[in-house]
Design a protein around this nucleic acid. Sequence first.
DNA 1: GCCGAACCTGTCAGAGACTGTCAAGTTAGG
DNA 2: CCTAACTTGACAGTCTCTGACAGGTTCGGC
Lengths: 208, 208
Amino acid sequence: MTDSQPGLRERTRRAVQKEITDAANALFLERGYEETTIGDIAAAVGMSQRSVFRYFPTKEDLVVGKFDFVADDMLQALRERPAGEPVWESMRRIFDLLVPYVDAPGRRQVAEPMQRIVFSTPTLLASYLQKLQLLQDTADTALRERAAAAGVPYHDSDPTPRAIVGAAFACLLAAQHAWLAGGAEGTFATAIDRAMATITPRSGNGAC
Amino acid sequence: MTDSQPGLRERTRRAVQKEITDAANALFLERGYEETTIGDIAAAVGMSQRSVFRYFPTKEDLVVGKFDFVADDMLQALRERPAGEPVWESMRRIFDLLVPYVDAPGRRQVAEPMQRIVFSTPTLLASYLQKLQLLQDTADTALRERAAAAGVPYHDSDPTPRAIVGAAFACLLAAQHAWLAGGAEGTFATAIDRAMATITPRSGNGAC
DNA sequence: GCCGAACCTGTCAGAGACTGTCAAGTTAGG
DNA sequence: CCTAACTTGACAGTCTCTGACAGGTTCGGC
């Protein structure tokens, strides 16, 4: 029953979602996240409080919700990477899917202040970290499956895949911080390169 | 006006705090975190809802609140590490302060199920990750100060210290996961050793 | 074009986590 | 003993989030 061609229902739904997030982000930028209530956002788009929650499960998802789509893409890309590729290289490649959402010519003026809001609002940061952690969980199992398919499975109590994945995401966060601290100069992709160059995984097809 | 010797007021406050957390944790283990309301906890210790919030800022802090004290100790320990020590070694050492809270002979039967609750409850996991992130922020600045004092300061846009600190904490989380997945067999300290052995930092007084 | 089914929406009602306020009780210290 | 500081319970209120219901709209088949 899932439409490969979006369909009108789904299309209007996306349109309304975008309308809500646009209004919400404008208010968040104007007066802050905590200071903006769902009622304010609902009034801004001319609908009831209840309907906003029909489009977004939580208030936090108004900001970090779109990340879920990218996460799915990243996970799929990870599974399609060649089995023999070093894990660190695979991680670097799937991070490239994140770049256009942050560093595109048009989005840059919007994405940067929104990133600052996420990092400076405890609730949003917690929500963002939680989503990253969920993605790490699935990446961990994906790497375990890859290793098992290659004939060298990890033991359940082997921390290796999760440690490497976690370190890669730590580098991603460090890249975001450094990029923002440097005034968003240079490419976000090179910021990731710099951060990931500071770490070397030891096992797991490591290249040392 | 802060008492170096605890003082009676502060002592009773700690006692009441412990009474609340004990009752709360018992209820959380019995019927789950989300299914337990603050009113239930207040009733269990015979006080009003309002008073519970006078002792703990949020419901989450009933579980992950004690981590704040350990975090302070870890940060102080990091500052007291010798300036020339490799960063990875320093991080490994301050993680030792965490061990007695998890792996002590008496606490083990309580700490393990509580850890499982944290990792399986989205709200608690998010709160825990947020606290870890806060600790990483301060560890990052501590390392930057250490490097500056040694005459080789990092540039603000250099992701190195945050990447290394983040990777170390990723290993800590991987160690927790692996330890729990393996049924909490063996020492938690060796679980940390195993996880941190999979990663090597490249710069920052790295030992490769 | 018509009709039943699925969908969307607003309104109401309610739970639960917090927060501010105030009056009453308890304690600390001179 | 007495005043000031601290603590508590009770009440009311905000805000996020959820369930239920009724009315209107759209979709797919005929």
